[in-house]
Design a protein around this nucleic acid. Structure first.
Lengths: 102, 102
DNA sequence: CGTTCATATGAACAAATATTCATATGCCTA
DNA sequence: TAGGCATATGAATATTTGTTCATATGAACG
């Protein structure tokens, strides 16, 4: 299993709009599932599935407190790379035209 | 169309093993399609499809010379972010277990 | 215990994706 | 202009992915 496969999995894992929003939220500190759900305004089940995807890739870490489960980024560098790619997308005008995916 | 959507498209675009390999190749300077095909050892048609995906996202730029078409990265920062994510994946042990995608 | 709250899971489905195969385009040279 | 390279395109297919719905787990507290 070459290195590129894991790297691709990682990039694909964070390369999804809902998961990106979750990561940007967590960049501001840990949040419990309920907080994330109301911040995103999406279904609890959907958020839970995405959190699992992030956790399976070791992008986030969980901590349980009573009934609540708190999520935080595995490293501040993950927030950095998200910000860096955001800046790249705007500065280089990446993925603006309709041909790109859509 | 929120910013996260474009960012997600970008990350998803580069988050594919074959496209990652192409980008790492192009990090060493421009290459024509034939060079990329033989470097990767994959079908010409497949490489062409992936090159198109990269081009549609403005990640690569083309230059035609006679029958050959040369591709290069739109910015050296694209090579940087690929390297940075590679280093993150190894240092943080991201996407190692089988649950992650597979 | 039974109930309520917080989160996770699993099946089902639609949409997106990577790959292959076959064919088309475009540029050069004899 | 005919033929050969180099690259691109399009249809077809199998796999993966995101989302929803319904239900399950598990912790607290009466």
């Amino acid at each position: 299993m070459p290195t590129e496969d894991k790297e691709a999995r990682f990039l694909q894992c964070i390369g999804e709009p809902t998961r990106l929003r979750i990561m940007k939220l967590l960049a501001g500190g840990e949040r419990c599932v309920g907080d994330i759900v109301s911040a995103l305004g999406r279904e609890q089940s959907l958020v839970s599935h995405h959190l699992r995807a992030l956790k399976d890739c070791n992008v986030v870490i969980t901590r349980q407190e009573a009934q609540k489960v708190y999520y935080h980024l595995a490293s501040p560098e993950l927030a950095e790379i998200v910000l860096k790619s955001e800046s790249l997308v705007t500065r280089l005008s990446l993925c603006q035209n309709g041909r790109c995916g859509e």
